[in-house]
Design a protein around this nucleic acid. Structure first.
Length: 229
DNA sequence: GCGACAG
DNA sequence: ATCTTGTCGC
């Protein structure tokens, strides 16, 4: 497992982090539809923390998009690089996630993040940020609606409703399992919202959350236990 | 001014 | 995110 230190120049205060978001958000690409679902590769990234020991472990798990079989997986460990502040989650996760992605032996294809992309107070959440830094196609699939509002989608898998910041659609509440709480999908980089939702449905044949995030979540937790123990 | 608030 | 066993149900 590779180890990373906090990058030189990494924001140390909320004001610095806000300035970075402000500078980078213009680089998000929104005029590409993205790779078609069910083709190529799809990669899940997630992190687990041990705040007591100031340790964060990231995992990247690459799946074959057609079969959802695992093609490759990596982990990376690092120091916690930022406190959790709503709206600044990316600064806590990105250095270690980048290290995990760098360690992959193959192209990750579309990257699925555990959190938001454009559904963000400044329209620059984790998935958008990671996309801009890597150039990869990214989407965000979150478990909670954050501060946004939505009308409950129909009860059937595949039903969706707009995720709203006021009247602006920043993402979609998407039902991935009949009668189960929806997930909250938003665009990251180089993928449109319809395609992001199509990918999310392709990644949820059996569970509420995408196979990518399920796999990445269990891997980084396992790796953290091993590191901590 | 006081909460709420992705992970 | 994390603290945490068993239990009800498909």
């Amino acid at each position: 497992m590779t180890t990373v230190r906090i990058p030189a120049g990494w924001p140390a205060t909320e004001e610095q982090a806000l300035a970075v978001q402000d500078e980078l958000r213009s680089r998000v690409v929104l005029d590409e539809s993205g790779p078609p679902p069910g083709t190529g590769r799809v990669t899940g990234v997630d992190v687990a923390y041990d705040d007591e020991r100031d340790v964060v472990v990231a995992a990247a798990v690459v799946l074959d998009a057609a079969t959802l079989d695992v093609v490759a997986e990596t982990t990376a460990t690092g120091q916690v690089s930022f406190p959790y502040v709503p709206g600044l989650l990316a600064f806590r996760e990105i250095p270690t996630v980048l290290a995990a992605l760098d360690a992959l032996p193959c192209d990750p294809g579309l990257v699925v993040c555990d959190g938001y992309g454009l559904a963000h107070p400044r329209r620059f959440g984790l998935a958008a940020h990671l996309g801009v830094l890597t150039g990869l196609a990214t989407i965000g699939v979150a478990k909670n609606p954050f501060t946004f509002t939505y009308d409950d989608p129909g009860t059937a898998r595949g039903s969706a409703s707009p995720l709203l910041a006021g009247t602006e659609e920043v993402g979609r509440a998407l039902r991935t399992r009949d009668g189960v709480k929806p997930v909250f999908v938003s665009v990251g980089h180089r993928v449109d919202l319809d395609n992001a939702c199509a990918h999310t449905l392709a990644l949820t044949p059996s569970y509420r959350l995408p196979e990518t995030t399920r796999r990445a979540d269990s891997l980084c937790r396992r790796a953290l236990r091993t590191t901590t123990a």
